[in-house]
């Protein structure tokens, strides 16, 4: 069985061109009588050519006009449809770039540096900058926290107090609530420090795809360093991951990106 009806079979290029050739030669024959604007039956007197078959008297018959208009209308609709589809596709892509995305973040429950319980629910309604580190960190964490301080200061000037920076400890053995409170005095006042047990720390690190090297039985008075991932995560007011900033991204680059994301968000959700 053929997959197509005999005449609807897709033609091969060769065959198509042959067909169009023969068609065009026939058309020239048909066009000649038309060009001298003579009715078909008078043609014999002026032309030595054999008479064209009466079926194809003229291409401009009412039925061809109908076909022409139908095709025209069809094309208009087709292109409108295609355009709508294209716009929808672009819209989807834009939405995907905004929301989509790596599954970073999730529910957690930790203790803030002021001694209050702090969960993922506390992130809703604000843009959060999430950074993991430890207070005994030699240089990278304080540098990144300085960067976050500069970023939040600049971003707040532009958008108001809609940002919630977080510093989450990956050193549960040594970072206590009070130690966190002392440590964070050097940085932006809106930064919330979070500490938890080893299990809680491991859970949030897993949710945020953060690696950390503290062993579960680390000595609370030991002098050791923690190896850990050093990305700053930007989460939107729905608690969804938006972007991760590395150490090489400067504060002004981060501010610029945040500005773009907040603008996009406000286009869809209105000003916060």
């Amino acid at each position: 069985m053929l997959p197509f009806p005999r005449f609807a079979r897709p033609c091969r290029a060769q065959w198509c061109s042959l067909r169009s050739l023969s068609l065009s030669s026939r058309e020239t024959q048909q066009f000649r009588p038309k060009s001298i604007r003579q009715p078909q039956n008078h043609l014999r007197f002026y032309s030595t050519e054999p008479p064209a078959p009466p079926r194809s008297a003229s291409v401009f018959t009412p039925s061809s006009a109908v076909v022409f208009v139908t095709v025209l209308v069809g094309l208009v609709f087709y292109f409108r449809h295609e355009k709508a589809k294209h716009i929808e596709q672009r819209e989807k892509e834009r939405a995907a770039s905004q929301y989509g995305r790596p599954k970073v973040g999730g529910p957690f429950k930790l203790m803030s540096h002021t001694g209050q319980p702090f969960t993922d629910q506390d992130l809703f309604g604000k843009w959060s900058l999430v950074y993991f580190g430890f207070t005994n960190c030699p240089d990278i964490c304080p540098a990144e926290l300085d960067k976050i301080t500069a970023v939040v200061e600049a971003a707040e000037k532009e958008h108001g107090k809609i940002f919630q920076p977080l510093f989450i400890s990956v050193d549960p053995a040594r970072d206590t609530v009070s130690q966190m409170a002392v440590y964070l005095k050097d940085f932006h006042p809106s930064i919330v420090g979070l500490v938890g047990t080893y299990a809680e720390t491991r859970a949030i690190c897993k949710a945020y795809r953060v690696y950390f090297s503290t062993p579960p039985d680390a000595d609370p008075s030991g002098d050791y360093l923690v190896d850990h991932s050093i990305f700053v995560y930007l989460m939107d007011p729905n608690g969804q991951f938006v972007e991760a900033f590395g150490q090489v991204t400067t504060a002004s680059d981060v501010v610029e990106k945040i500005h773009g994301f907040v603008g996009e968000w406000e286009k869809d959700h209105g000003k916060m």
């Binding site: 207070t135 304080p142 130690q179 966190m180 002392v182 440590y183 050097d186 609370p220 008075s221």
Partner: peptide, 11 residues
Amino acid sequence: EPKKKESAPLR
């Protein structure tokens, strides 16, 4: 003693 001394390093 050592735990108390182990306060957070300041700027």
